[in-house]
Nucleic acid binder design. Structure first.
Lengths: 179, 179
DNA sequence: CATCGATGCGTACACTCGTACACATGGGAT
DNA sequence: ATCCCATGTGTACGAGTGTACGCATCGATG
């Protein structure tokens, strides 16, 4: 089942290139040709590994999700029953939104693309699930889903309107949802 | 200052056509040519009235915002100090998400496009403002902004993951933020 | 060793796009 | 009455797109 030929990691390199392209030029700048150029592979190679752009987006979004899941896991505080959950969440958001926003923008751009691309919906659901699951362990499933919704809403307000992120505000309102 | 010649409402017809195009084919299907065809005007006419597609999107999003603002105003219950605010908001969301979702999808697709198009950000901010303002009168500015964030987050979760809308759940968590 | 199929590669086609431009027209200002 | 210019129209160009297809190349299977 190992890769067949010269370039066993071709597929992975293409996904990485796609992520870089979306990060740099936006989802609108994603095409078979742009990823091919970025990954330094011929055009035919990208169309071979991913028949359609949707397929490539699914792979890219899934990989981005995994990246964020790792960040969450690394900051293990969501698991600590003694910690201030609202504060931890607000801190996590601050970490995402601070400095270089390429990562968050990429994540949300792919996430939001699910609005028009049903193929991405299951992966979008995974994103919600990945964040909701640890939260549910600290609270309950209903509260967890609401927290995810509020996190998304706050992040989007910052990203879309150009407002600056106010961690104290986030902590306050997240706390209200937790009850 | 009245319009000059044959077709005084040309510009408005183009905006309407753009909204229909985005509703039907998504933002990706929006081009000078598609709107021109939909509005039944020559290509040159659209490029004359809107030098760039961004300009057209701004006009379309602004008009969509006004439409929603009217819906909100028509359901005057947000203003009634005696009414259950969380219930009213949840009901409003139910109305949006019920049946034909073309309107909400259009609104959010244009709204979210602001992520990559700075030209749309002021208009996205207006959308937040239009919804937050009446809410702030019933509560306070901080709570109002949080409510908008939560409304957006819940709507997006429904639209993006294909989950069904649960009005009781929405009312419950909105109530917590108000509480 | 022979074969087969997965993988890689290059090219061509038909299409859509944004943009620019040259020209037509008639309403308002003078 | 005349002129100007905002508005309307048609066409062309170069760039970029998804897709399909034929051929090359080896690893694994038998």
């Amino acid at each position: 089942m190992a890769a067949r030929r010269y370039d066993p990691e071709r597929r992975q390199r293409i996904i990485d290139a796609a992520i870089r392209v979306v990060g740099a030029k936006g989802l609108a700048g994603l095409s078979h040709r742009t990823v091919a150029a970025e990954a330094d592979v011929p055009l035919g190679s990208t169309t071979y590994h991913f028949k359609t752009l949707d397929e490539l987006m699914v792979a890219a979004l899934r990989q981005a999700n995994e990246g964020f899941a790792k960040v969450i896991a690394a900051r293990g505080a969501l698991e600590d029953p003694g910690a201030d959950l609202a504060g931890e969440l607000a801190g996590l958001m601050g970490e995402w939104l601070a400095g270089d926003r390429t990562g968050v923008e990429l994540e949300y751009e792919l996430y939001l693309a699910a609005l028009r691309r049903p193929a991405l919906r299951p992966v979008a659901a995974e994103w919600v699930q990945d964040l909701a699951e640890p939260l549910a362990r600290r609270t309950d499933p209903v509260t967890a889903r609401a927290l995810v919704a509020l996190v998304d809403g706050i992040c989007l307000q910052v990203l879309l309107t150009g407002a600056s992120y106010d961690e104290g505000y986030a902590r306050e309102v997240l706390g209200r949802v937790i009850g």
